[in-house]
Design a protein around this nucleic acid. Structure first.
Lengths: 343, 343
DNA sequence: TTGAAAGCGTTACCAT
DNA sequence: ATGGTAACGCTTTCAA
C-alpha cells in the first residue's frame, strides 16, 4: 500500500497535521512545531520514503498545477509548418519556470462539448485557433476556469481575453503590396477545414475590408479541397484573378505544387501569398511571399496572461475586464509575388 | 459553489450512488435503476449543468488518464532538429485515440529527484533520452507507476522496458561505410551535455565496438563545447582523424559550420557523419550523411506498450518481465562522406 | 504548542 | 432494486 501522511505521523509519534505543516514549509499553516519534532518528522518521512499524493492535494486544494493547451485540429508536428511547434515553445517558456505542467487534451474538443474544461482538471486553458459553435461558445463563457484564446479575433467569446494577429493590418499590407504591383483581381484561398474556423473567416473578412479600402473589387473566396483542377485556369490570360492570398503557408505550398503541375507559372501568371512565413517559404519554388506573425511571442504572452488570471482567481481578486491584444504582422516579400499579368 | 452529485441526487429525489450509476453508464456498478428514475436523474443533471469532477474521480479511482512524457533536456521544438516533434507525433498517435491526456512535466526531473513520478498524478510515464544518476535509477525502479524508457539501451534501469535504436548495428553500418571509403582513423564527437546521457555513452561504446570489429584503431572521443578551434587541424594533412561521427545532426551542423569557417573542406579533408537523418541533412552544405532512426515509430510503439502496461496494472494481471526492443537503423549516405584523405 | 475532527466529490460495499 | 455508509489522502479549522 501507499505510504500516507498518517503513517509518517505514527512513526514520528505526532499527528498528521504536524507532518503536513512541516513538509509544506509551515508557511501557510497556523500550526507550529518544535524544531526537534520537525526533525523527527522529516526523518520519519525519509525512512518511509513518503511521497505526498499530488492527487489528494489537488483534490483538497482545488488546484492542480496543470494548464491545458487545446488546438482546434489536433494534428502532428510538421517541420514544414511550425505553427504548433512555435506555440508550444512560447507556452513552455511561460509555464515551466512557473512550475505548471502542460497538458495536451484533445478530448476537450469532443463532440463540440467543451464541458470538460471546468471539470477541475486544469487550473487554466489556452485555446488555440478556435472553431466554435454557439453551444460551445456558451459553455466557454460559463467555464469555471480561466481561459485565454489565441488566434481568435477580439470578442469571439464574450468576456474572454484574446491574443490574436492583427489580420486587418496584415491584409492591408498584403493588399497594398499587391496594388503596388498592379494587381486588382484578388482571391482568398482556404481549405474546407479552416474555412469554418474563426480565424479563417476573420482573414477572409480582413482581406475584403482591405481591398475595399484600396478601391479594388471584392475578392472571391476559393475553397480548395483535394481537387485543384480549378487552378488550371490561371495559365490562361483570361483568368479571373492575378493574385491568390492563401490561408496558410502549407496551403500555399500545395497551390504552388499544383500550379507547377498545371503549367501555371508563379509569379508570371499569378502571384501567391502565404500566411505564417515559415521556413518552408525559403525552400519552396519559387520562394513564398508570406505574412509573418510573431507566433511564439504571442503564445508566450498569452500564457503569461493566463497564469496571472489563475493567480488572481486563487487570491480572490476581483476579475478585471478581459483584454484583447492584437499583434502587428509583417509581410515577408519573396519571389512568389510580382507584377500583375496584363490581360 | 460547485454542483455536486448530491445536488443532482437531491433534485431527482434519489441517492447519490444512483446518479453515479446512471451517469457512468451503469456498466461497472452493481446498482440498477428503473428507466423512469434514470431519465429523471439525467434530466436533473442537465438542469443543474452537473459536471462530474474529474479530480474527485481520479482521486477515488486512482486513475487520472494522464501520461507524462519526460525529456532529458526540456528544450524547444526546433524545425532543424525534429527529434522532439517526432517523438510527440508518435506519442500522440498512440495516446489520443485511447483517451489519454499527454502531460509535459519538466518538474519530474528537478534535482535529479524523480520521486514525483509516483505521486499519483500520472497513470504512466514515458521517459525519453534519460541521463540517470544512481539515486534516480533506484527511484525509477521502485516507482509505483508503469514506466517505459525511450532511447535507453536495454538494462539501463533494471526491470524497465526500453525502446531503443540499435546503436551497435548503426555504428557497424557507419564503420563499414567509412572503411569502404578507406577511412581508418575515426573520432566520435559529442557535446558536453549529451556526453553524460546514457545514449551518448551507448553510441560511443557502439562505435568503439564497431571499429574493433573492423580491425581499426580505437576512435577518440572529442567533446565539443563552445570552442571549436580544435577543428582547425583537419585542414592539415597531419590531422589525427579522417572521419568524425557526431552524436546528432544538430552537432554535425555546428561542426560543418566551423569547418567552413576554418577552411576545412568536407568531405575532401574530413568526412562527417550525423545522427537522426533529419531534414536539415538535405539542406546543409554539404548534404549530411546520417544515421536514420525510426523515431516516430519507436515513440508510437513505446507508448502503446506503456498503455498496455497501464491496463495490465488496472486489471491486476501479473506483471510479465520487461522487454527490450531494438530498432534497426539505416544509414542515409549523402555528400559529407567520401574517400579518405591519404596523408 | 498540539490534536481531533470535518470535509473535498466520488464510488464500492453492505444492508435493506 | 435501492439507499446508507465508509473510505480515498490531504489540509484546515477549531478546541484543548
Amino acid at each position: 500500500m501507499r505510504v500516507t501522511i498518517r503513517d509518517v505521523a505514527e512513526r514520528a509519534g505526532v499527528s498528521a497535521m504536524a507532518v503536513s505543516a512541516v513538509l509544506n514549509g509551515g508557511g501557510g499553516s497556523k500550526v507550529t512545531v518544535t524544531a526537534e519534532k520537525a526533525e523527527r518528522i522529516r526523518q520519519a518521512a525519509r525512512d518511509l520514503r513518503y511521497q505526498p499524493s499530488h492527487l489528494a492535494r489537488s483534490f483538497r486544494n482545488r488546484k492542480t498545477g496543470q494548464v491545458a493547451v487545446v488546438f482546434q485540429n489536433f494534428g502532428r508536428f510538421i517541420p514544414q509548418s511550425p505553427y504548433r511547434a512555435e506555440v508550444m515553445n512560447g507556452v513552455m517558456e511561460a509555464l515551466f519556470p512557473n512550475d505548471y505542467t502542460l497538458s495536451l487534451c484533445p478530448k476537450l474538443m469532443r463532440d463540440g462539448d467543451p464541458g470538460f474544461v471546468s471539470d477541475g482538471r486544469f487550473d487554466g486553458v489556452l485555446w488555440c485557433r478556435p472553431d466554435l459553435t454557439e453551444t460551445s461558445t456558451l459553455a466557454l463563457q460559463e467555464a469555471a476556469v480561466p481561459i485565454v484564446m489565441m488566434h481568435a479575433p477580439p470578442g469571439t467569446v464574450l468576456g474572454l481575453p484574446t491574443f490574436c494577429a492583427d489580420n486587418d493590418g496584415a491584409m492591408r499590407r498584403v493588399a497594398s503590396h499587391l496594388v503596388s504591383l498592379g494587381h486588382e483581381r484578388l482571391a482568398f484561398v482556404i481549405d474546407p477545414v479552416s474555412e469554418h474556423s474563426v480565424e479563417g473567416q476573420a482573414r477572409a473578412e480582413a482581406l475584403l475590408l482591405a481591398t475595399r479600402r484600396a478601391g479594388l473589387p471584392d475578392p472571391d473566396v476559393i475553397i480548395l479541397a483535394q481537387d485543384h483542377s480549378i487552378l488550371q485556369r490561371y495559365a490562361e490570360p483570361s483568368a479571373p484573378h492575378t493574385a491568390l492570398i492563401c490561408f496558410s503557408d502549407e496551403l500555399a505550398c500545395f497551390v504552388l505544387d499544383s500550379c507547377a503541375r498545371y503549367g501555371v507559372k508563379v509569379p508570371e501568371h499569378v502571384s501567391i501569398v502565404g500566411f505564417d512565413s515559415s521556413p518552408v517559404c525559403e525552400t519552396s519554388q519559387p520562394r513564398l511571399t508570406s505574412v509573418a506573425q510573431p507566433v511564439e511571442r504571442m503564445a508566450f504572452e498569452a500564457t503569461m496572461h493566463l497564469i496571472s488570471l489563475i493567480r488572481a482567481v486563487e487570491e480572490g481578486s476581483p476579475s478585471s475586464p478581459a483584454t484583447s491584444t492584437l499583434y502587428d504582422c509583417g509581410l515577408d516579400i519573396r519571389d512568389s509575388t510580382s507584377f500583375a499579368r496584363s490581360n
